[in-house]
Design a protein around this nucleic acid. Sequence first.
RNA 1: GCCGAUAUGGCGUAGUAGGUAGCGCAACGCAUUCGUAAUGCGUGGGUCCGCAGUUCGAGUCUGCGUAUCGGCACCA
Length: 618
Amino acid sequence: MINYRKMNLKENPQLNVLNHSCAHQLAQAVKHLYPHAKFWVGPVISDGFYYDIDLGDDAIQEADLPKIEKEMKKCAKDAKKIVREEISKADALEMFKDDPYKIDLISNMDENEVVISCYRQGDFTDLCRGPHVENTKFLKHFKLTKVSGAYWKADAKNKMLQRVYGVCFENEEDLNGYLKYMEEAKQRDHRKIGKEMDIFMLSDLVGKGLPMWLPNGYTVWRILNNYITDKEIARGYKHVHTPDLGSVDLYKTSGHWDHYKADMFAPMVKINEGNRDRTLGAILKDIDDSKLEDDVYVLRPMNCPHHMVIYGSRMHSYRDLPLRIAEIANDFRFEAQGAVKGIERARSFTQNDSHIFCTPAQIESEFKGVVDLILDTYRDFGFKDYTFRLSLRDPADTEKYFPDDEMWNSAEASLRNVLDDLGINYFEAIGEAAFYGPKLDVLVQPAVGNEVALSTIQLDFLLPRRFELTYIDENNNKQTPVVIHRAILGSLDRFIAFLLEETMGNLPLWLAPEQFTIIPVNPNVHSDFAYDLCRRMAAEGFRVKVDDRNEKLGYRVREAQVKKVTIQVVIGDNEVQNDLVTIRRHGQKQQLTMSVSDFLAAMHREVAEKLLNPEGEE
RNA sequence: GCCGAUAUGGCGUAGUAGGUAGCGCAACGCAUUCGUAAUGCGUGGGUCCGCAGUUCGAGUCUGCGUAUCGGCACCA
């Protein structure tokens, strides 16, 4: 049985080869249907294969996929042997002379070190390292899933090719299982659940990428805010509150202005005679030339600079360190149009941020403390599927990363040490570091789309220097502290998005925006008891309401289930006469009758201990 | 930003060859008072995303814009 959720073809050799071969079959079909097509190969991805194609002015659209699938089926039915052929570089250059993309690839191959191999199936030959299945007859159970544009060599400066995605399985059952899983995943999408549960809304009038939190959503938001703040306080964090904007000079000092101004909201100046008719470009130029005399502000895209300034505002002894400054902070980033996605990636969001100022000797223990906090937090939410990514700089990218090899090497080495020490499984990713230092990201898989980072820990030797931060060591010498940037929930917004997808909106009692609905069997007879109970529960801090509408009991129960109310409390003659409640949990058929006092005690316990929902009956 | 698709009352949708909009849920009203996933009947609500164009006539065709969706690129 395939676990579609965690399907990683790179770790499944059999499926990997199958998808690899199916990509070639796709190319063959496209070649038949579009003889002028020029190709680039597509690798296998975690959940299928793709192939990039240059069709000139022509384009493959989603409506064309069935046609291509039909052609692919024909290729599979032909049952051609797939034959490996090894050729010389010169032969390869000749053979693929019509495919500029492969020529590019072949030209860069070292013929002494690399065997140049091709795979032939019928009248179609493709350059490939292999391996492949033996015969196209194994390639019957596939589906083309989507088309899109994709940049040649993954670089936005390059030409955009057509990319066709697909997935191939050994048998029809596995394929159908996958398609069914993908359908279910769409039902889990936080944008869908968020709408159904009135978590947040978007409005064109307010603006793209600017989610508004509705009462239900803000309830969850507020609980998470308190939850993480309390947890941090218990671990010695000091919370601050700083403005949502800052002067441009602040970001010039930090270096963010140079790196990210294109993705920040445009600078703000007071409108006056001097600048009324000036273009934004002129103002930006003056900012860069330090010629603008007015105060210029930007909406902050991150909080590091503010916290640096707080640290720098007074003298610190090594005895004060580590100093952990934390904030639940609003940030604003002008995300690219195509990047905005619900509350997972918005243009205004709220970070659960902190900057830990410490001595170099404290890096390891602080880092471990943060990892521990992350694991502790994930345990509370029952998260199990996440991966650690050690994000390193790309030494070749001197534009993004400040050039100080020694600093980078020691920072990266110390992160590795801690991870190995803690025995954490992680993978390394070159070129994923922040411009100021390497980081450890915790990645999760949303219902739809690419992996996203939830938590992050970043090591920073650069900002303390830029802000000239110091502490006095035991020998009365000035030293530069190290900063660890970290976010546990990441952004509250993204965290809630993930939480909704993981739970399908069925949040555990302590988080559920609608915890209880009290349903009097006969509103005319049982309402007094229901409202008394409701008042009492509300006074004790529960989120509860009475549904005494003039509807049948079954109707009101159904609606409470559909609305994902955690617990339904039904009140009838038996309950009123004996001071009882009959409860039914969301997603379960079982009913329990108990005394009101036992019920309240159990519910208080469930909230206090943050118990997760019991497994559903289905 | 790039490639492509989509856009109909609060939500989900129908509208096949252009002839001024249906349906389900929700809402509201009346009847019903019913012990665990939909009681019946009735009522109201839509400048068919915006702007411009083609046409005697546009939800339906064309162009531009906006938003949403699927990818790509980006993600401090």
